[in-house]
Design a protein around this nucleic acid. Structure first.
Lengths: 223, 223
DNA sequence: ATCTTTCCCACCTAGGTGTGAACC
DNA sequence: ATGGTTCACACCTAGGTGGGAAAG
């Protein structure tokens, strides 16, 4: 997708098996780690902090992979794509649409640093993407993922069967999307502010509110 | 070498070229990093702390490798072997022989965690052995290198051309020894103590001393 | 008494985190 | 004033370090 147009997110989880060129079957299953945590955040609109110097994701994006061929080599990667064409704002304790999206920077494919590795190794332990960093600095030179603040994004996870990173562009990707990992990029957490702004008189939406005990949380308190 | 007998240290640096089975030549050159620091320590008898919980080496053992085949795969490793059959003691600011050595524990080959990698990658940056740890705990379960306190040791560096760690035992090793990295294992630094014990009346050796400015240093102050 | 080891602890470092004040 | 961003900073963690007290 060219600059200025969001990448279309893959709408469903493609848990289909793949007939490979060697004639051997793999049938990857992917499970999101800390699904409960993600779901809890998702209910109230996950916010992901982005900074000039780069910020890791929280919650962490971590998956457990199964169904690979033990001895075949795989490259695992992730990227983060825009969900829609909207800019958002946090108003009266809710995220609401606030106009058209800003142009998107080209998105980097983040290759898991242990790639390529054998299926055996990927399946032996959860696969974490610790080192992926988010930034709002459009001049970033570290290779971090550049996002627009106040825009909505969807992380995606990819499995590629390949021996060599050089062959990546010509390889078949299997893409997995976990809708509960959707988030809005922010430069400072917004949810906390809701504490002092409960007035919903100006809101176009209904004023139905989650219970305060669910609503007001410090981002880390759910852990 | 069986328990109780020290490994014979390789006396010279074998910078010879190797004709490989594929008929391609490599001609590895290995340079010790921080040679000046090692030499400075060596002059006064390098001491390396070993602890129950495991201690990294200081100075760090780091080498620059050149002359490998870019595309061939190599395993890089190091081990630490006993230099002689003696136990040492620190007396009157000097290390002196103090009897016969204790039995040596079998020595672990420490495989550099990035092994196996292509020659290209090994040559692109210094190869450090950060993670190698020394211990005096003969029941160690971490796989650390077990040494005897008050004994003299020689680190060795090895290059093996091999695709697979499984093939290591059957492969040809090229071994490099840097005499200035020899050290005596201690559970607590001894040199500092020299400050208050300059009397050499009891020493069998000549009382010739290095200048005091060279002699009395805190291990880290040379950096 | 001496020598060596063990243990504990304060310190340091590197890196990541939230917060609030300042800025635009 | 508002909304959003930037920045400095205190805090936390994990892990490594030397030194001194105590033990063997």
């Amino acid at each position: 997708a060219a600059l200025g147009r969001p990448h279309p997110p893959v709408p469903s989880q493609s848990f289909t098996s793949l007939q490979t060129e060697e004639g051997l079957d793999d049938d990857p299953k992917v499970n999101l780690d800390s699904k409960k945590l993600w779901t809890e955040f998702h209910k109230m609109g996950t916010e992901m902090v982005i900074t000039k110097s780069g910020r890791r994701m929280f919650p962490a994006f971590k998956v457990r992979v199964d169904g690979l061929l033990e001895t075949a080599k795989y490259i695992l990667l992730m990227d983060i794509v825009a969900v829609d064409d909207c800019r958002y704002k946090f108003h009266n304790s809710r995220w609401v649409v606030a106009g058209k999206a800003d142009p998107e920077m080209p998105k980097r494919m983040y290759i898991h640093p242990e790639s390529p590795s054998k299926g055996e190794q990927w399946m032996s332990k959860p696969v974490a993407f610790h080192k992926l960093k988010l930034t709002n600095n459009i001049s970033d030179k570290h290779g971090f993922t550049i996002l627009n603040s106040m825009h909505k994004y969807q992380p995606r996870f990819h499995i590629v069967r390949a021996n060599d990173i050089m062959k990546l562009p010509y390889s078949t990707f299997q893409t997995y999307v976990f809708p509960e990992t959707e988030f809005i990029a922010v430069t400072a957490y917004q949810n906390e502010k809701g504490k002092v702004d409960l007035d919903c008189a100006d809101s176009d939406d209904s004023c139905e509110q989650p219970s305060t005990s669910d609503l007001f949380y410090s981002p880390r308190e759910l852990v």
